[in-house]
Nucleic acid binder design. Structure first.
Lengths: 157, 157
DNA sequence: CCGAAAGCATAGCCATTGCTATGAATTTCC
DNA sequence: GGAAATTCATAGCAATGGCTATGCTTTCGG
């Protein structure tokens, strides 16, 4: 019944205690589940901003996956209340979708600019930011943001 | 000729071109597939270093998932040649496993210390590093490493 | 206006990663 | 040495995210 207590005061504690460890992994698993949704919503928002509309075909081309894969995910996004779909007329974000997109875009932007600011090349920053953004918590994000503002490179925006 | 070219020189290019975009997403998807393997191998290595042995039960407790989930993944790791399993006697890393673990641990360590070095709290650094590490490419990693060495905080190691 | 092309939906398959329930094997403890 | 507890394996289910193949609709070009 003691459950987690499990002392085992080993000689070299390179490991944090089990419960703490669990928390990190659990958080990471949670993030992994929401990554794709964020990617889609963010991309849709980008497409609308960039070209005025977001079509399934565009998403297919941007993500580099098969069309039915996108179709299935869009159905999920409709169910989750992030988008509206009008056949042959494009995809539109709901209010919830817009909010999520704005948040994701902001995070993405900060992460990418942060990487650039510490000296990462443009290409690597683009690629790595795509994966990293989903795992940056609020605290880390604000640290990144402050860093970028402090070491502002004369970039756009 | 047709394929990707797709000009559409829109007014506000907040978007990179499609092929470039695809590359980022593709890389991210690839990373996502190897994350779990790395997590497991790294954890197993930690457990062995810390307590002399890694048992399935320990992994279950550390990851916070159900035991059959771990059992299934371990079977996969055996097939992939990263570990050896001896029933009721623990889990052992093969040479390939040790190599992967060393690489993962190093990356993890650098990312976490980098986060600490830029001002992220210990707890947030621990949690975020767990997710970020898998998306840090070689270039970014070496930038992080250099940063840590330059701004060395009197931490351990 | 009508046929071809483009865009989208659907069906059906596979792999992955999680779960619960259950049973077998091994250790441990008396 | 045998019963109990621990440890592990296996079966079976669900959700997610990918794919190919196929067919329906809408739009576009002549």
């Amino acid at each position: 019944m003691m459950a987690s207590g499990k002392g085992k005061p080993s000689g070299k504690p390179s490991l944090v205690d089990a419960d703490t460890h669990v928390e990190s992994f659990r958080q990471t698993r949670t993030n992994r589940r929401t990554e794709l949704v964020e990617d889609y919503v963010e991309l849709i928002d980008d497409l609308i901003l960039d070209g005025g509309e977001a079509r399934q075909v565009d998403i297919v081309q941007r993500l580099g996956v098969a069309q039915p894969t996108v179709a299935k995910m869009l159905k999920r996004l409709v169910n989750d209340g992030f988008i509206q779909q009008k056949r042959y007329r494009g995809i539109f974000l709901t209010e919830a979708g817009k909010a999520l997109a704005a948040k994701s875009r902001e995070r993405h932007r900060i992460v990418e600019r942060f990487l650039r600011a510490v000296g990462v090349s443009e290409e690597a920053a683009r690629i790595d930011a795509e994966g990293i953004e989903h795992h940056v918590g609020d605290e880390t994000l604000s640290v990144f943001k402050a860093f970028v503002e402090r070491n502002g490179r004369g970039d756009n925006t």
